[in-house]
């Protein structure tokens, strides 16, 4: 009981601090998303492009977007698009899924990746 109060307080403080940070990151992410947007639509209901529509995909199954034909390489990956999975994927797609048809060498800057992931989370 005595431990739960400070913990709740910490969570509350973190919450206050954390709210603006991802919002800011998402703005930067929208700018970083320019490189993704050449191939990926992001508005709800838009047909797939060279890559699948990314609306609402955060937290969903990897290579699970209905109506898009994924590479065998990416279909082999199991699980869902968490922050950690997205971070590894975006850093080096060819290493994450060797043979992927996503023709992108990777977003090498961790802060930029973080920002793009925050932006992807807003697409819902």
């Amino acid at each position: 009981m005595s431990r739960s109060v400070p913990l709740r307080a910490v969570v509350a403080i973190l919450g206050v601090l954390a709210v603006p940070a991802p919002a800011l990151a998402a703005d930067i992410g929208e700018s970083g998303f320019v490189q993704c947007a050449a191939c990926h639509p992001a508005a709800a209901g838009q047909p797939h492009g060279v890559g699948p529509n990314l609306h609402g995909r955060f937290g969903q199954a990897i290579a699970g977007t209905p109506g898009f034909v994924f590479s065998r390489a990416l279909r082999k990956r199991e699980g869902v698009w968490t922050e950690a999975e997205l971070d590894r994927w975006l850093a080096d797609p060819q290493a994450y899924a060797p043979g992927t048809k996503m023709a992108y060498a990777g977003l090498k800057d961790p802060a930029q990746r973080r920002a793009v992931i925050e932006y992807l989370k807003t697409l819902r």
Partner: peptide
Amino acid sequence: YDWGLDPY
């Protein structure tokens, strides 16, 4: 666009 990475 990384045409070298694109398998096609």
